[in-house]
Simulated assay, not measured.
Amino acid sequence: MSTPAPDQSPAALLHELLLRGLWSTVIDEAAPQALQRQGGAVARLLAAGVDPHDLVDVIREAQVDTIYNVAQLIDWPDEHLAPGALPELRLSASVAHGGAAPQPLPELHSCLMERDPSGRAGEPRSPELRRYALLEADVRRQIGALVGARKFPAAAVLWKRHAGGDLKAAMDAVRQLAGRAG
């Protein structure tokens, strides 16, 4: 995400900071080892043999749902009330000691998913994307370069060599990667 410009309006700056803050609370799929720091149910599930990558996927999906719901609550804090129960409420932003009138905050939930750092707009990982993430970094770079150059057969052969499966499944996986990149 880009750094907010210092001359942005207070509402635009707060909007950007909230979007960044919400996504920063979501687990990093590339770091399942971070689960080792958890206690309670997470530690028990790991001790019972649950695949850490499955656990990361479950946690991420729950977190994405949660941040979307929080963003929607920030946008529409009175939505759960009966019509006419209270006057319409909206959040606004102003610079403390700035003297300018508060500005309405742009909707968060409507653009939250397009800011997903994974590039999947909040969607869960497919089995192919998960398998790709588990490949060694050098192999991922090689496959990524081949996909970027639209050399799908070569990328599929490399995929098959390192991820297994048949050639058709490897080609499907490579095409999925191409669709994600494009």
Rank of each mutant, 00 (worst) to 15 (best):
I67V: 13
E123V: 03
A181T: 09
L167M: 12
A62R: 14
H162E: 11
D166W: 14
E79I: 12
A48C: 07
A149N: 11
R140C: 09
V26D: 08
E88S: 07
H15K: 02
P102Q: 11
S92C: 03
E114W: 15
A101K: 11
Q72M: 07
R141S: 09
G39M: 08
R37P: 02
R175W: 02
S110M: 09
Q176M: 12
A30Y: 00
R37I: 05
A155H: 01
P124W: 02
M1H: 09
L35Y: 03
L55Q: 09
D138A: 11
L112Y: 13
P117I: 05
V64G: 08
L146M: 09
H80Q: 09
S24D: 11
A170Q: 09
S92R: 05
E123Q: 15
L134A: 01
S126C: 11
P117M: 06
A34C: 03
G21A: 04
L18I: 07
W159L: 05
G144A: 07
P117L: 06
T3Q: 08
D65C: 04
P32F: 00
R90E: 06
T25L: 01
L158V: 09
S2I: 01
E136L: 06
T25V: 01
A71V: 08
R37G: 09
A155M: 04
L129E: 10
G165M: 08
V42C: 10
P104E: 09
P106I: 11
D75E: 03
G144P: 05
W76N: 10
A47Y: 08
V70T: 10
L167Q: 10
L135E: 03
H97G: 08
V56W: 10
G84A: 01
A178P: 06
R115E: 14
K151Q: 15
P10C: 01
G182H: 13
A93Y: 12
M171Y: 06
E29C: 02
P10R: 03
E88D: 08
V70W: 00
L73E: 14
L17R: 04
Q36K: 10
G182Q: 14
A163Y: 10
A47E: 13
V64D: 08
L22W: 03
Q33D: 15
P106M: 12
A48F: 03
R115H: 15
A101V: 13
R175K: 15
H15E: 03
L19N: 00
D138I: 03
P104C: 13
D166N: 13
G98C: 05
A170T: 12
R125M: 09
Y68G: 12
A62Y: 06
A145V: 14
V26C: 05
A5T: 02
V157G: 05
K160Q: 15
H53C: 11
A31E: 13
A100N: 11
A156D: 08
L146E: 07
G21M: 00
N69A: 14
L86A: 02
R90A: 15
T25F: 00
T3C: 03
D78L: 00
V64L: 14
Q176F: 01
Y132T: 00
R60S: 06
Q36I: 08
P52G: 04
E16A: 08
P106D: 13
P77H: 02
S94H: 05
P52I: 11
L46C: 05
E107T: 14
P52Y: 02
L45D: 07
D138V: 04
L55M: 05
